[in-house]
Design a protein around this nucleic acid. Structure first.
Lengths: 367, 367
DNA sequence: CCGTCTAATGGTAGCGCTAACACTATCGTT
DNA sequence: AACGATAGTGTTAGCGCTACCATTAGACGG
């Protein structure tokens, strides 16, 4: 009597692959080596003969193979989850921000978690919860990254935090930003170069550190050019359109009206244009208006604004990449070094700047 | 003599888990059932007793378990890749669009591929390449989804295409949109309700089908109210700020100036506000201005615009979900049905509308 | 000539999850 | 009573890749 129940004939099971995409095994067969060697080539590890490497690469391109991200991160044991926090209301900033993050996240197979929050206060408990939930790192745009409580929290949590476009470069977290001081300096110099002398400035929200840097850049450029700064010409704003209108009204009501106004962001610059039009000043012939940030607003309104473009997309992409790098370093026991990278900005010249009109120059000269 | 070489003692291998995150097995142990049952609960499948389901759910929340996406999509054999195409220049539209897609993509573990292209012509070869590269579906905002060539191509490729906010609801692809006709009708009725009779309208880009629908809504509302439409009051625009300015100048130069202007999008409405201000008309006391779309522009400028809000974020999220559903259906051999869903819009009342002033009414009454 | 070392490669066992079954009660049917 | 249908659950075998170790071939020193 034979008992067969103990070893049931292994039933044929249909492969679960629906996809016909080539796998690493296919490549290995084609290149006549083991999957392991293929893996090494893909990941650019050493200890592979040049000849072998070449064969593998040929096989890869012949089969049009691309590694399966899911399998990769599963086998690699890592699950890179990155939270994008934002309470920044500027939609154009946000979209650049998101696109940059998405592109890089796709490349390194990270998962993005988008978190919007009304304020830093609201962000704190959220971040705590996310960190507990296994988030590898946070990407923080301003004003979140300028908030001390947020920075303290990330340190407490031992979380990776990368600031994108922050005001200050200090702290233990990494940061990608432009040189706000230098950018404002350049813009001011550009305006001076056009022949302007009475140049108004609208300061941004005092809570964001970048505001002060931009103001300093403006001041330094004036000084360098030997123009005596006038307190009348410097007005406080809050980065909003509305505050820009108020500031513009103040500046344009001056006895000696400025011939140019440099606003600390595009929303306020747009407001200046609107106010100028209302009192029948032509932009740029009667007054030059320049902004900062190159948001969508800048190229939507007419005339389109001369402004400073930050490479936001690139910054966010680099931030995502940095979180990946740091996480990997941490896993292998290295102590991650916080990097602070200054990226180049661009002065985008559009249609809102021009040399001062003769009339304006004369009036000012006479005043 | 014992030969041991045939069965080498299995060497202890350190677990590769670096993460201490709970796995489905942990949950199963806690809930005293098999991992499979846990999986069923997670995926909301049927055939699980209520009691068991409860236990599992308790275990999940006790351990704070969240499934590993990578493992999931690897085991599921699917790799959902969704391409977001856009040549829509409106940044605020884009950010809403992206946020919605990201949120849902995170939920169903899809990979998003963001593709910007300058025009539909440029999009065609790109889409072909993407489809060959294993993209499961495309999400198409206007104007791409209104382009016949794009639609034809998706059909050729056998690709899933979901339109978000398209003008027309036809075709084999799915679509999520609002009722443009009804929304414009409602807005016009709202303006009429304030007491306006001479209501100007600025048409959108003629290439986008939504433009015509909005115009028809406007016309229908006038007719319903017994207001005789005047061709003078209807001006062609192109959805841009600049075209809005030109249209506004035309409308505001009319002998019998309209007391309200309804622009087919926010950019043009913003331009109307600017032009009105330039000729010293107060918005909304001298003239009511309404927009459409509720982009960031609408709440950036002053006065903030009364406009129609499309649930863009929700639309995109649903589009992503739909692609997932359809892909799954296809794999299991069902024929996917194209769904066309109309989502609710909102009339957002802000500060740019008011009853017509007495003076304006009198002047028009006398004219 | 043999051990020792390094470079190159291969074998194996998972990573965490789910598809595709197998199995066991429970129930209604003939 | 024997049978099939069904609901609920468990078992097994992967998904595609990489970490970890084993193994082999060649280089080198004594």
């Amino acid at each position: 009597m034979s008992i067969r129940t103990t070893s049931p004939a292994p039933r044929k099971r249909a492969s679960r692959r629906s996809n016909t995409a080539p796998t690493i095994a296919d490549v290995a067969r084609e290149a006549q080596c083991s999957p392991m060697t293929v893996s090494r080539v893909i990941n650019g590890e050493g200890n592979v003969r040049e000849e072998t490497r070449g064969q593998v690469q040929q096989a890869i391109s012949k089969l049009n193979y691309s590694p399966n991200r899911a399998a990769r991160s599963l086998a690699g044991g890592e699950q890179l989850r990155i939270a994008l926090m934002f309470d920044n209301p500027s939609a154009s900033y946000l979209s650049e921000f998101l696109v940059g993050a998405l592109e890089e996240a796709g490349r390194i197979d990270a998962h993005l978690e988008v978190q919007s929050c009304e304020s830093a206060t609201e962000a704190l408990p959220l971040m705590r919860k996310l960190a507990e939930g296994g988030i590898s790192g946070f990407i923080l745009p301003p004003p979140l990254c300028d908030d001390q409580r947020v920075l303290d929290l990330t340190k407490d949590l031992g979380a990776i935090a990368i600031a994108v476009g922050p005001g200050k470069a200090e702290g233990s977290h990494g940061a990608f930003m432009i040189d706000d001081f230098q950018a404002a300096y350049d813009m001011t110099q550009h305006i001076i170069g056009l022949g302007h002398v009475r140049i108004g400035f609208i300061i941004g929200n005092p809570e964001q550190v970048a505001s002060g840097r931009r103001l300093n850049g403006y001041r330094a450029a004036l000084e360098k050019a030997g123009i005596e700064p006038s307190d009348d010409l410097i007005v406080q704003g809050r980065f909003t359109y509305r505050s820009g209108m108020a500031a513009a009204e103040k500046l344009l009501a001056l006895d000696q009206r400025p011939t140019a106004i440099f606003a600390s962001n595009d929303d306020m610059a747009a407001a200046v244009v609107a106010v100028a039009h209302r009192i029948h000043l032509d932009v740029p012939n009667d007054i030059t208006v320049c902004g900062f940030d190159d948001t969508a607003m800048a190229s939507t309104i007419w005339p389109e604004l001369t402004t400073i473009r930050q490479p936001i997309r690139e910054m966010t992409a680099k931030a995502v990449a940095a979180i990946g790098r740091i996480t990997r370093a941490r896993r292998s026991g290295e102590k991650p070094k916080a990097e602070q990278t200054i990226l180049p900005y661009t002065l985008v010249r559009r249609e809102s700047d021009a040399a001062p009109s003769l009339a304006a120059s004369k009036r000012n000269g006479a005043g």
